[in-house]
């Protein structure tokens, strides 16, 4: 087994790493880039906690080989805003305290951010479609939905 070179652009920075061909993107992000905001929940594309944005599209990173993500723009939860200015979705989730344990939250924020990038007035159906596949065990759903609705009302 040998490693290959892999050049990834994450949150605007390009870095060369050496990884096994089958290494999923989530392990590259968490272990090679130190970006642990992306969470591993199932590794089976069933829970949504590992969502990132790749070239503007929400993607699950737990089963996606990192080498297939070269020459693409990857955005993780850490890259949505800056320390001093959060993006609007993060801001709304903060304002509404829209998380309990928070483990599922970064995946949800990524998905909603990517939805709003494409459509600034999504319908309830658009929102539910986007959130399909995002699981939360703490039952933060009601507050999360309120935070999202506040973004659309404004």
């Amino acid at each position: 087994m040998s490693k290959v070179e892999c050049k990834l652009n994450v949150n605007g920075l390009t870095k060369k790493i050496y990884i096994f061909e089958d290494k999923p993107l989530i392990f590259a992000l968490r272990n090679d880039f130190g970006l642990t905001g992306t969470k591993l929940g199932c590794g089976l594309e069933q829970c949504g906690s590992c969502a990132v944005i790749i070239d503007g599209e929400k993607k699950l990173s737990c089963n996606l080989p990192a080498i297939d993500c070269q020459n693409k723009e990857i955005v993780t939860i850490e890259g949505l805003g800056t320390d001093t200015s959060l993006n609007s979705v993060q801001e709304a989730f903060k304002k509404f305290n829209a998380a309990q344990c928070g483990y599922c939250t970064s995946g949800i924020i990524i998905t909603v951010s990517s939805l709003l990038e494409k459509k600034n007035k999504p319908t309830s159906e658009d929102i539910l479609n986007a959130l399909d596949g995002h699981l939360c065990r703490c039952g933060s759903h009601s507050v999360v939905l309120k935070a999202i609705e506040s973004l659309i009302e404004n």
Partner: peptide, 17 residues
């Protein structure tokens, strides 16, 4: 404002993982 909410929404809140 919940104590850890800013860290949660920015992906900086650290879990054992």
């Amino acid at each position: 404002e919940l104590k850890n909410i800013k860290e949660i929404v920015t992906g900086k809140y650290k879990y054992v993982h």
